[in-house]
Design a protein around this nucleic acid. Sequence first.
DNA 1: CTGTTAGCGCTTTCAC
DNA 2: GTGAAAGCGCTAACAG
Lengths: 352, 352
Amino acid sequence: MAETLTTTALTLKDIARQAGVSLATVDRVLHNRPGVRPDTVRRVKEAIERNAFQPHVAAAELARGRARRFAFVMPSGPNPFMQQIEAYLGEMSAWLSSRRLSVEMVATDVFDPSVLAASLEGLSDDYDGIAVVALDHPGVRAAIDDLVDAGTKVVTLVSDVPSSRRHHYIGIDNIAAGRTAGALVGRLVGQRSGKVAIIAGSQGLRDHAERIFGFIQVMASEFPGLSVLPVLEGRDEDARSEQVLARLLGRHADIVGLYNVGAGTQGVANALSEKALSDAGRDRQVVFVGHDVTALTRRLLLQGLMDAAISQNPGHEARAAVRVLLALARGEPILREQEKIRIDIVMRDNLP
Amino acid sequence: MAETLTTTALTLKDIARQAGVSLATVDRVLHNRPGVRPDTVRRVKEAIERNAFQPHVAAAELARGRARRFAFVMPSGPNPFMQQIEAYLGEMSAWLSSRRLSVEMVATDVFDPSVLAASLEGLSDDYDGIAVVALDHPGVRAAIDDLVDAGTKVVTLVSDVPSSRRHHYIGIDNIAAGRTAGALVGRLVGQRSGKVAIIAGSQGLRDHAERIFGFIQVMASEFPGLSVLPVLEGRDEDARSEQVLARLLGRHADIVGLYNVGAGTQGVANALSEKALSDAGRDRQVVFVGHDVTALTRRLLLQGLMDAAISQNPGHEARAAVRVLLALARGEPILREQEKIRIDIVMRDNLP
DNA sequence: CTGTTAGCGCTTTCAC
DNA sequence: GTGAAAGCGCTAACAG
């Protein structure tokens, strides 16, 4: 009736005794440090295996007694999503300091590869680990690889540089996110046929490009009744997004769906609600799917102007980045399942 | 450019010196233990505040040196969702034992209040904390309250007993989950009008009842074109679910949506795919929304027979339950944001 | 009421 | 190659 999943009470000392060696030797074997005869290594390893011995992390942490410093390299400028990540890091401060960890924010122009690369290079010696919202560019890749070579742990956050040797990526699969957006737009449009608009910050941004790719893929293969218009670029700015979208809506009366890939949400909403006014009486508004749950998208979802937001949980990303950097620094295993960032579909009734 | 969120390097000793007292006194104040003159308390607290002092958790854990035992009281019988929670607890075993924590599974008939209550009563002295998939019933409530009175930390898991004095509930808001399901069915049905079926395990289960409530609420207020048929009960069994649903589908040709509140998914799928066959050529199948991502629902989503699954992440629930029990046992703060279980909408393209 | 002290289990010199 | 021993920062007896 009761099945135990865990037991341990042994200590290094017990293992040492069983293996007929001293504490120090067990410690060396445990951490693959050199200076132990192969035969001794084997004896110790056997004792460890035999007892399924797990060293007590608290004791190790205390004995090591080292404070760790991490840096978060994030975009300067007022991006609500990034601000949420910062805010969640702030909420962790008690957690961090009771573990002698420190996290520092480094703001930089992440859209300029040379600036970003330079920022990264400058951090090498000061930090045990770095989380960076990275632009996928050769210069940035080189900077990341240099950090890694210098022994710094590096995780990419939100936006990845897959070709680099970063230790981990904390963020969503953007192609799948785009596919999800596409499936939602298609399904929510229902039987109607017509055109679908896409507005992105820039197609040069890897995450935007991937989302668009996934979106178009699904549209083409599963919703033949819907035709996708050429992608608009709003540079993630409200004014420009509103302008280009309004023009498009004016030109095509039969737009039934809209995918906003990046920010500039207020502008998109403005253009859309203007159209909604003039459409009053029509059977249904344009289906509008975008990204991220912010104060604004929350309001739009509640109003019904926006139908769904594809979201990556910023609190989870902040905590996962810290935990992964810490695990990397300590040489502990990473709980992949726990650290994986999911693609959340947020609609009015499951707003977090 | 770089803004620090955290700093600390002080120890109890530093605080003791600043306050002009001994280590032990600071420790007493820190843990609100009695036996310190109010004036001294104030002085110490001031020193703590002034330095924003955070005791080193690793040191505390080591010094306390106590192993903690937790029990998970879960339904006997083969419920895939519960098995997933167990599996994720299993994956944590290294994490657990390196912290000198143990988790034991206690299987019981959680649907029989007296059996469940008796199981709980029997555990009082052996565990520091208990997570229980609870039935909301006066006997169970009393058993939980007794545990709490005895100093055991109690969290309800998946299914809550809000009237009890349990310390925490790990699970979703089931009314909101039902609303989410309703909105999805309504939106995915689109312009068509017709009937919507609901099949539940039992309306006597609190979580099922709440989901139904939320679902009907949304249907009534937002989808006047859809009428909800009386709730079917399938007792979470495949055979019975298939039977009652098949009969219903036979009687009403104009069913356009289906909400499966609990398990019995295979039966539901059977009934539905049979109907789909005979409907071949019709414009669209019945919209089918259910709960939880299991091997089966995953397959159904990929096939397209199922449109969406409302899900609560079992891995997250398992880890959150352990973390919360641990925080409660140690008297540490709970990171509410981290432990909150979200209502996930899972469709084909964002399958985890 | 308050202080002293002996560990908790591991890491890390420093000797041998 | 290996071992002995001094802490890491806190907790918990036990004295006073």
